[in-house]
Computed example of a mutant assay.
Amino acid sequence: MVASPAGAAAGLSYADIVDLADGAPLVANVRIRNIIPLKPDQAGTVPSGRKRLFVEAEVTGLIRGESGIAPIVTYLYDAPLDARGKTPKYKKAQMIVFARSGTRPGEIQLIAPDAQIPATAEELSRVKAILAALVAPDAPPRILGLGDAFHVAGTIAGEGETQIFLRTENGDPVSLSIIRRPGQPPRWAVALGEIVDEAARAPEPGSLLWYRLACALPPALPPSSVRALAPADADAARADYALVIDALGPCGRTRTKG
């Protein structure tokens, strides 16, 4: 495999790759055959520090795309400039592109200015695993926001349980449950269904379910979620939600979502 240009899209996080994969109807492995830098009057508006290129590439593997793809594709890419104002050497480089079909045969459009990453073995494996998780029958839905929260205090000081319902894109039920018992660390879980049972667990970091929560949930429980609760129960629900946010940790995006 031909080495990819240094700095083409190094260091993207798990969340960055899911952002790209989740929004791309077409994902392909390509080998760049030719690039043509566009003149300013041809390029249009280009972000600072980048140069717009017309790229011709050979498709070496279709990773996602029901309608197929032409063997040779063309697209525009805004390449980052180095300290000398030069673009990396892309010719013959193997890349993964996240795209949609263009208006002409053989033309594709990247879904974001940086939706081209080096096709290393590690990145190919990661992209394929993410795409498989996105289309799995039990894939967690996109989270739109928070619904109602409920809290029930226990009979013993320090005992209680909070349940927080999430709003999802497809309407599937998703909820968070937080249980506190005296002398034990708090335990929280996420349920993908109407019933919270013993099988419910906190998501594994770096999993699609973790991404759906860590990258979509607001930092604090909004007033609308606790409007029906007594003040003490609302305070407990807020504290339990904060525990979940702290446990999830930061989403980890390093790029501007496009």
Rank of each mutant, 00 (worst) to 15 (best):
L221Q: 06
L221M: 11
A216S: 15
A202P: 03
L229S: 04
D240A: 02
L221I: 08
C215S: 10
Y241L: 09
P219G: 14
P218G: 11
P231A: 12
P205D: 08
R238M: 03
R227E: 13
V226P: 01
A202F: 06
C215W: 06
S225N: 13
A232K: 13
S207D: 03
S225P: 07
A220D: 11
P222Y: 01
L209F: 08
L213E: 09
L209M: 11
A220Y: 08
A220P: 02
S224K: 15
P203M: 08
L213T: 04
L217R: 05
G206Y: 10
A230P: 07
L208F: 06
P223H: 04
P205Y: 12
D235I: 11
R212P: 05
D233T: 05
D233K: 15
W210A: 07
Y211T: 00
P231F: 05
P205R: 15
Y211A: 13
P205N: 06
P222Q: 08
S225C: 13
A234I: 03
S225L: 04
R238A: 08
W210K: 02
C215A: 11
G206A: 04
R227C: 03
P222F: 14
S207C: 06
A237L: 06
R201T: 15
A220R: 10
W210C: 07
A230F: 09
Y211C: 01
A239D: 08
A232L: 13
G206L: 06
P219Q: 15
A220V: 14
C215V: 10
C215I: 12
D240F: 05
A220E: 15
Y211V: 07
A236C: 05
V226D: 00
L208H: 10
Y241K: 04
A234K: 09
R227Y: 09
A220M: 14
A236K: 00
P205Q: 10
A236H: 05
R212D: 03
Y211H: 14
D235L: 12
A202Y: 03
A220W: 05
A214D: 08
R238S: 04
R227S: 15
P219S: 14
R212I: 02
S207F: 05
P205H: 13
A239Q: 11
Y241F: 15
A228R: 12
D240M: 02
S224H: 13
R212Y: 00
A202C: 10
G206N: 01
A230Q: 14
A216N: 15
R212W: 07
D240N: 14
Y241V: 00
A232N: 12
A214E: 09
C215P: 03
P203V: 12
P218M: 02
A237M: 02
L213S: 05
A214Q: 03
P222A: 07
P223E: 14
R238L: 09
A234C: 09
Y241D: 03
R212K: 15
P222M: 09
D233S: 15
